[in-house]
């Protein structure tokens, strides 16, 4: 961190500090929280202690309800996202390869993207009731439109010269799509999937708050009824960890092995609805 030559001991210390640096906000925040809690002694209904939160996680894990809720949430997310991605990519390809169709559908895409997700909740409760169907619909809805829009964009932005060059090698329409259009559009598709999952994950928690009997969102909502702030905080932390794990172990490896390996960068931030 400094440019002056250092003794081995100082260098080791420097490395240690550098390694621990990412945990500093948590440590500082945790310390401040503990000090405040020990001075003010707020009731559990207002604020838990760190020990309370850890206790809540253990309690929930032991009763098995945590696993049930996590699995319920992940199942909904997986199903909704898978449907959304598959349909979004397919529809995106058909539309992206067909310019007049893309022009025709664009206003609809912009509009339905703007009301995707949670906005459908009141209407859908009436149609499908409370439960998995509702959550899956909202996730599908969030993922589908973003992936759709990004796929259309990606397909349209594949340089024409790449397609032409492969056609002079004798490639037919299908081979051109397979070897040029799909990989060419992949950065955009992945961008869409990534922000789609972001929207989907948020829609899921929101949907479960009011529209489910199980799931992490419902776990938090139930806890609020009994003023169990320890469970609420524990739930939030678990939600964050799952999202981070998905990003790190699912999306990042895919991106590393494709888009980054090929030296390509998507030129959009992806999740821009509209």
């Amino acid at each position: 961190m400094t440019d002056t030559p250092r003794t081995p001991a100082r260098a080791r210390l420097g490395r240690l500090v550098w390694r621990l640096l990412p945990f500093s906000p948590i440590l500082i925040f945790g310390a401040a929280w503990s000090i405040y809690w020990n001075v003010a002694h707020p009731p559990l209904a207002v604020m838990p202690s760190i020990a309370n939160v850890v206790g809540a996680v253990i309690e929930l894990a032991q009763s098995g309800s945590l696993l049930t809720d996590i699995l319920a949430s992940l199942w909904r997310l997986g199903l909704g996202a898978l449907l959304g991605i598959a349909m979004g990519v397919a529809a995106g390809f058909v539309t992206g390869l067909n310019k007049p169709l893309a022009t025709f559908l664009n206003p609809l895409l912009v509009f339905f993207n703007a009301i995707s997700g949670i906005v459908w909740l009141p209407l859908m409760i009436g149609w499908v009731g409370i439960g998995t169907g509702l959550a899956v619909f909202l996730i599908w809805n969030s993922v589908f439109f973003i992936v759709f829009q990004n796929t259309v964009l990606g397909v349209q932005l594949v340089p024409e010269v790449l397609e032409q060059s492969v056609r002079t090698l004798g490639a037919g329409r299908w081979e051109t799509i397979r070897s040029v259009t799909f990989p060419g559009a992949l950065p955009y598709i992945l961008n869409g999937v990534r922000s789609g999952l972001g929207f989907g994950w948020r829609a899921l928690i929101a949907a479960e708050l009011v529209g489910a009997t199980t799931g992490l969102g419902q776990m938090i909502f139930r806890a609020a009824d009994f003023s169990r702030t320890d469970i609420i905080v524990a739930g939030c932390l678990i939600i964050g960890m799952i999202a981070m794990a998905m990003d790190r172990w699912l999306l990042l490896p895919i991106e590393r092995r494709t888009v980054q390996r090929w030296g390509m960068v998507a030129r959009s931030e992806g999740g821009r609805p509209g």
Partner: peptide
């Protein structure tokens, strides 16, 4: 082609 037309992937 004049432009780079080989596939990046």
């Amino acid at each position: 082609f004049q432009e780079l037309a080989i596939l990046p992937w």
